[in-house]
Nucleic acid binder design. Structure first.
Lengths: 229, 229
DNA sequence: CGAGAGGTTGAGCAATCTCAACGGGGGTGG
DNA sequence: CCACCCCCGTTGAGATTGCTCAACCTCTCG
């Protein structure tokens, strides 16, 4: 079957739409080999033939696409349990490790065999691809009509949610650099930094260190993310 | 199976990645009823329960998501042969007719039955969902790091390609208004208009009427779309 | 012929980017 | 152990892009 590339988010992330578990995909990890990647290391290049599919076991990776003049757009972040390279003849985006990362690497031929033998695997692929698509559409809504404050507020709330932080003042460790935030939001690093400072001055967040964030007022931040002046 | 919503592009569009034909989905048209929509008419609302899937038979529709403050982002345009509402418990975006449109409307239960009975249908769904995902990622690249000229140039080239216009100076009829161009690109209508005028002055395009476009220099336009100064 | 919608153009302004300098923390080498 | 260096983040000033508000034009439709 002619699958196109797709990176699939694991069902276990807090705050994501309920997916159920994915036992159908777990077997693939056993088939594959385990590989390591150091921070910043390229795992696959945009446009390379898609010979293997991957599942993130520990750590985090980023998906990105580049423009001709060197700028780039981060498509998504994947954490433990997420997959990429499941579909498509070529990788439609590059993948780099953010932290030290372990991945399971499985030949695409093995995945294709699993799809043929077990219809439940195909069901999971459709389901996860659709969830990925919904994420992509949300990201478009973020990139298109939103201004810098709305973008940064949205990202902080998303990261807090995905980190599992709870309570009236959720605190979490920022997994990505300012540069990565900027690439993800379609902004420059300076604008991200200024916006973070502004939020701090306005009492919306606290920054014990540049990578430790506390949402002091998630309600107002959410209103800001939605475009409330 | 718990499918998520997805709008699927038809395989017959010129310039798209080769998909092969989709006989597996054709049967669904026979099952469903044919409905009409007038320009501007809402076909489904964002968030409504996804009770039916649709296939565009003639005309064109737009997919959009709205923000809390009334702005909106156009996700995609669908033309004859494209499907939406195939996946998901709810529509994750609204759909409106652009032109007078004919659609085939099929209960989701019928689609689910077809998936169970014919694995080839599931293959098609995965394949088309993945193609849709690739389009979404391209759109992110368009919205994030690109400036107004790059955005408009990219859109003109995409529309020309999808309209099937050929030759050294492809000509086509713009299927959407300036407002829709703006919503799609994350710009204002004035900026779109000015950029079109600038392209005309620079000899890159001709505009016999505001809705008839001739690409006088597709090569330079493509270079502009990719970020060449 | 009048009205309205869609498109174009202009002027001023605000947001963001660019270019540049500065500061702090962590790692390395003396 | 300490000094140095480098990377990352922050801050500042000025340039630029795209937005806002407003007027005008053109085509279509009644």
């Amino acid at each position: 079957m002619a699958l196109s590339q797709s990176a699939l988010r694991a069902p276990s992330l807090p705050g994501e739409a309920a997916h159920g578990t994915a036992p159908e995909l777990d077997g693939l990890v056993a088939i594959g080999i385990t590989v390591q990647a150091t921070p910043g290391q390229t795992i696959v290049l945009e446009g390379d033939p898609c010979s293997h599919c991957f599942r993130v076991l520990t750590g985090a990776v980023r998906l990105y696409k580049g423009t001709a003049d060197g700028r780039r757009q981060l498509i998504d972040f994947l954490v433990a349990g997420d997959c990429f390279g499941l579909l498509g003849a070529h990788y439609t985006y590059g993948v780099e490790a953010i932290t030290h990362t372990t991945l399971s690497k499985t030949p695409r031929a093995s995945l294709a065999a699993a799809v043929r033998e077990r219809p439940a695997v195909a069901d999971r692929l459709i389901e996860l691809a659709a969830a990925e698509l919904a994420r992509a559409h949300d990201q478009m809504l973020l990139l298109g009509p939103k201004n810098a404050q709305e973008k940064v507020a949205s990202l902080l709330l998303d990261l807090a949610r995905r980190s599992g932080a709870q309570g009236a003042r959720p605190a979490f460790r920022m997994p990505i650099s300012r540069q990565e935030m900027a690439d993800h939001l379609g902004l420059t690093i300076e604008t991200v930094s200024r916006t973070m400072t502004r939020f701090k001055e306005d009492g919306l967040i606290a920054l014990p260190t540049p990578h430790d964030v506390v949402l002091l007022n998630p309600t107002d931040l959410a209103a800001l993310a939605e475009g409330a002046a």
